[in-house]
Design a protein around this nucleic acid. Structure first.
Lengths: 348, 348
DNA sequence: ATGAAAGCGCTAACAC
DNA sequence: GTGTTAGCGCTTTCAT
């Protein structure tokens, strides 16, 4: 390593000699372990304070905990992820744990590398947000370090799961559109690069539920799905494709707000008014959805609660819990001005 | 630590015995260091492959590099940050370096803790995005580990700086509005909790430039600044305040797109049309600004380039460069439909 | 209650 | 070109 100018780091030995005790004693005080007298504890604390000592995480990692939890996010473009991280950070604050984030990307290879990076850095626990890898791969990691998976519905004995009830959420949206009088309701879903069981992936659940509800209302012939991406571009492309079809949809349910924004753009560019010519609904209830110019009907997921819960479950696992926990939150429909009765029908 | 079920991690010793060489040899191959024959290199590579060996980052951290760079972001809500991280990740890909992110928060205390967390984890370099701490504090860290600061204009001998020319950017916006015929142009700036020299902070530069350009055009009496936050809520509150003032502005220049979105919402709620009754401009040219329903005039900053450059500078510093580099990128004005000539004036 | 000492996985002197 | 070995800063037996 390049030698830096800075003076040598304060180590546990410095603290020990300052406090006139052994390094063992200092270590015990640091971890609040058994076997130090109050007086000694006080002396050590004072020395730590005076020297501005902070434990060296890498050195700790060689023996015990790093007091670090790793979070893998697919990317940083969905504000919903920010809620998750805020919830987690909140839950962790005061516990001495620090969250570090890595970007998983959109390929399984990149995701594996990101996960390995966390394992190699010896984090005490890992939160995986909407991972792509097959369950077996996740369990492989879960065998080495406590894992919580957020956004997948899997039931695994080796890791905990935190998710929103995507089936209910999708149902709420499709029912809402049907109640408004729509029949030609289309859906935009996400093209994944995943080897997970499809039924465990949130976008697959949303799409399947869309199909099921359509069928339940005798609308099987109107089912139209565009498979692009949960992104602005994906929504734009998907909407363009759907709007070109012979029987143009009167409503589009995009599986995520980000995609719904693209749908709004495509509608605009096609000269269609929303909701006059086309109703649009999203999922996630991001802040932007509430902007008056957008006013997007969406499904609210309590991201902060989900992130906080994930943090708590991770801490429990780090403390020794080995039985799996699944935590599901209930979504709610937020109706805004982007959805209305179709034009060719009388108002309700 | 809780003992996990997983089998023991593969270590360098396992690789060495499998390849029938010393651990030194393996270490050398790993780091592409001098002094290994091609034949031996081949044997070692094969053994690594067969055993699925990955170096233990924490152990490396005790002696040499961790091949990790740390990034501190204030929060995850600005998509511009995603561009920066993408640029960095791109630049780092293939070099063996992994980026880990931590959230700095909005207080200096939280920011210090986040920075310390990176230092304690022995990252090889740190990228600080729009930090709040005083220059002296940043230099303290820079003495221990290579640092690049993104988004501050500081000239320090101890760290590199990457920033956008905020003065030019703000000039472009204000001049654009003046050319359209506006006189009552207001500005929304960010309330920081910083002890940095004000002149080094991007939001202060944008606000000061706004004032200067206004004065240069004889509009000093029209200067109106609301100090809230670069966020949707901040923009909303700031706009409300500005629109309540006796001589209502005909244009608002928000220092960031996020805040401009809030301005659009406030305008809508006040029954004002954009750009009919009020022109609105932002800064950052986030993707949402391009959505037809928003169509926000903004300043484009090449976030990917900035992040990539930061990564390159960091690598150079890690390799031994000690002289400071400053890298400034040029902003450009993107005119959209949120700005137009004020209503009470004849069209140009 | 306290401390000496071994050792976590790796790198870098240094010897051969 | 190759291997031996001494630590890096901590935690954890295990004596005392």
């Amino acid at each position: 390593m390049v030698t830096r100018g800075g003076r040598r780091r304060v180590t546990i030995a410095d603290v020990a000699s300052r406090a006139q005790v052994s390094t063992t004693a200092v270590s015990k005080v640091l971890r609040d372990a058994y076997g130090v007298s109050p007086a000694m504890k006080e002396r050590v604390r004072a020395a730590i304070e005076e020297l501005g000592y902070r434990p060296h995480a890498a050195a700790r990692a060689m023996r015990g905990r790093t007091f670090t939890v790793g979070v893998m996010l697919p990317h940083l473009r969905n504000p919903f992820f920010a809620d998750i991280v805020d919830g987690l950070t909140d839950e962790l604050s005061g516990t001495g744990y620090q969250a570090i984030l890595v970007q998983g990307g959109s390929t399984q290879k990149a995701e594996k590398a990101a996960m390995d990076a966390l394992v190699d850095r010896q984090v005490d626990g890992i939160l995986l947000v909407a991972p792509l890898l097959a369950r077996a791969r996740l369990e492989e990691v879960a065998r080495q370090v406590p894992v919580v998976v957020l956004g997948r519905h899997e039931r695994s004995p080796h890791f905990d799961a935190v998710f929103d009830d995507d089936e209910t959420g999708a149902e709420l949206v499709v029912n809402h559109l049907i109640e408004l009088g729509h029949r030609r309701i289309a859906h935009i879903t996400h093209q994944d690069n995943s080897t997970a069981r499809p039924g465990d992936l949130l976008h697959v659940i949303r799409a399947d539920t869309y199909r099921r509800v359509m069928r339940e209302h005798g609308l099987e012939d109107e089912i139209a799905v565009a498979t692009t991406y949960y992104s602005e571009e994906g929504g734009y492309d998907g909407a363009q494709e759907l709007l070109r079809r012979p029987s143009r949809p009167t409503a589009i349910f995009a599986g995520a707000d980000q995609a719904a924004f693209g749908v709004l753009a495509a509608a605009h560019d096609a000269g269609l008014s929303v909701p006059g010519d086309l109703s649009v609904a999203g999922y996630d209830n991001t802040k932007l959805a509430a902007l008056p110019n957008i006013s997007l009907t969406s499904i609210d997921q309590p991201g902060v609660v989900m992130g906080g819960t994930a943090g708590r479950l991770l801490r429990e696992r780090i403390e020794g819990r080995t039985t799996a926990v699944r935590f599901s939150v209930g979504p709610s429909l937020i109706v805004r001005r982007s959805t209305a009765a179709p034009a060719d029908l009388p108002e309700a």
